[in-house]
Nucleic acid binder design. Structure first.
Length: 480
RNA sequence: GGCGCCGUAGCCAAGUGGCAAGGCAGAGGUCUGCAAAACCUUCACCGCGGGUUCGAUUCCCGCCGGCGCCUCCA
């Protein structure tokens, strides 16, 4: 497989450090608030990567952290009069429930800063011992950015090009404005842990370096995250990891993978802009498959503009793929080239996770299946392949449960319709009411009483229920 | 100001130095008692201006427009 490496700027072969195994580290969230669609998209990209690699037979260790001690978290907790760690726990629990609802694979290891303090302190000590960090009288520890000439190699910038004068406030204790905290001395009221430098807590970037090294080793395969993390977060992670390095040679992640941002109305979705869509809201409006279809329909590195139109297209696309899995009675030998679909799917996925093209192969296969069904061919094997490949992308392609969808409709108009047509109504059970109406219509059709049959169809359609007649009977579904 | 990304049909979105995937929407047709679904057909010369080339949407330069990072951020 080839992946674009931010570090080198080129697409490179993924050559496992340990044959047959892949270590993947992805920066997780700072749980000071509910997760939003951007977080979901990010994790979904790596979820697909993991699914694909495992499908190809590699043993993947997927690590993603929670930064559960941080300035923002402390501020937010203070505003709400809560304990910061309790706030973090609550948000993590919610986010993990949402990850499962979204069909995301939970990372194998989900370390938290607050449970890794010793590990982090150990790494800071190594950096200090190597002379690449310094301790201030107040008990802060700073990484000395100027101590390594190649600082900036990931984000491809020079220290001197950064707008340090206008944007950074050089602290009194810092030697240089860009130096960043490895350890922050405790301020009143803040959570703190004992360390060789006194009470305090880890700085923002060190946790990822320490946890990645602990769970994946000093050198591992892939480090992922949003493009907004390239600088300074990932740049600093590299600096720290190399500053604490034991063995000579290349260190830390071989490939740096970065996903684009989800945008809303053409702008980055972020809390400061007030344009976020929370995961909870998204799940309320759209199915996990539709959200995934939307995310995977563009290249992972590109920004993805979340619009109602885009989601409508994603929903329709999912329905198309799902419908292709409906059984066909045919028995004639099929001409569908399953092997070609599979090969094409692998080819595009191997090429830097080409999910848009992978989806195209799924749609092509779906068309072939539908054509085969119409031609009376045996399509079971092709459908199994479609299901399998969709599964590699994390798509479930399950028919929406009609009862569940119906339960979200207002029962009143259905009861009214049933009463008008003198059909027994089951009170608030919309699904049963629809079933009864459909039964009445089937009877009407049998009698060739088309006027009533059409009335029932049209009235239900107006209420958001679509009927489909076929040899197998009448199926109904709730429009989205 | 520095670094980087993007500009492809009504919308979303891939892609390649040699007649531009896929999805949604639209149009016509087949099927259907009528529909729906499905199938068939149809729908772009790739922001603008130069250059390189036998040939550029694809490479180079400039311009215009949009976005991201440089501060917390998936």
């Amino acid at each position: 497989m080839r992946l674009q490496n931010t570090l080198t700027g080129s697409v490179e072969d993924l050559v496992p450090v340990t044959p047959g195994r892949i270590g993947l580290y992805v920066c997780g969230v700072t749980p000071y608030d509910a997760a939003h669609v951007g977080h979901a998209m990010s994790l979904m990209v790596y979820d697909v990567l993991v699914r694909y690699l495992r499908w190809r037979g590699l043993q993947v260790t997927f690590v993603s952290n929670y930064t559960d001690v941080d300035d923002k978290l402390i501020d937010r907790a203070a505003q709400q009069g809560r304990d910061p760690l309790e706030l973090a726990n609550a948000n993590i629990e919610q986010w993990e429930r949402e990850q499962q609802a979204l069909g995301l694979i939970l990372p194998d290891v989900r370390p938290r800063v607050t449970r890794e303090i010793d590990n982090i302190i150990g790494m800071i000590e190594e950096i200090v011992a190597n002379g690449l960090a310094y301790v201030t009288p107040a008990g802060d520890v700073y990484y000395r950015v100027r101590s390594k000439a190649d600082y900036g190699k990931l984000s491809h910038r020079n220290i001197d090009d950064l707008r340090t004068g206008t944007r950074f406030e050089p602290g009194d204790a810092k030697e240089f404005a860009l130096d960043f905290a490895l350890w922050k001395a405790q301020k009143p009221g803040e959570p703190a842990w004992p360390s060789p430098w006194g009470l305090g807590r880890p700085g923002w970037h060190i946790e990822c370096s320490a946890m990645a090294r602990r769970y994946l080793g000093e050198r591992f395969d892939i480090h992922g995250g949003g493009v907004d993390l390239i600088f300074p977060h990932h740049e600093n992670e590299i600096a720290q990891a190399e500053a604490a390095q034991h063995a000579p040679g290349p260190t830390f992640a071989n490939i740096w993978m970065h996903n684009g941002m989800v945008q809303r109305d053409g702008e980055k979705m972020s809390k400061s802009l007030g344009n976020v869509v929370n995961v909870a809201e998204a799940l309320d409006r759209w199915s996990p498959d539709a959200i995934r279809m939307y995310v995977l329909s563009s290249k992972y590195r590109q920004p993805n503009n979340l619009t109602d139109e885009a989601m409508a297209a994603a929903i329709a696309g999912i329905e198309r793929l799902t419908a292709a899995l409906r059984p066909g009675p045919g028995t004639a030998p099929t001409t569908i080239d399953i092997a070609a679909s599979r090969a094409r799917f692998i080819e595009v996925m191997e090429d830097d996770l080409g999910t848009p093209q992978a989806l195209a192969t799924l749609f092509d296969l779906a068309r072939a299946i539908n054509r085969g069904r119409d031609a009376g061919e045996e399509i079971g094997a092709a459908q199994a392949t479609l299901r399998e490949l969709a599964g590699v992308l994390g798509l479930t392609l399950v028919e929406r449960a009609t009862d569940e969808a119906a339960a979200r409709l207002d029962p009143a108009p259905f009861a009214k319709l049933a009463s008008r047509l003198e059909v027994a109504c089951s009170g608030n059970d919309v699904a049963s009411t629809i079933d009864a109406l459909v039964e009445r219509r089937i009877a009407a059709r049998t009698e060739k009483y088309w006027a009533l049959a059409d009335t029932i169809r049209q009235e239900l359609d107006a209420l958001g229920v679509t009927l489909e007649d076929s040899a197998a009977g009448t199926r109904w579904s709730v429009k989205r």
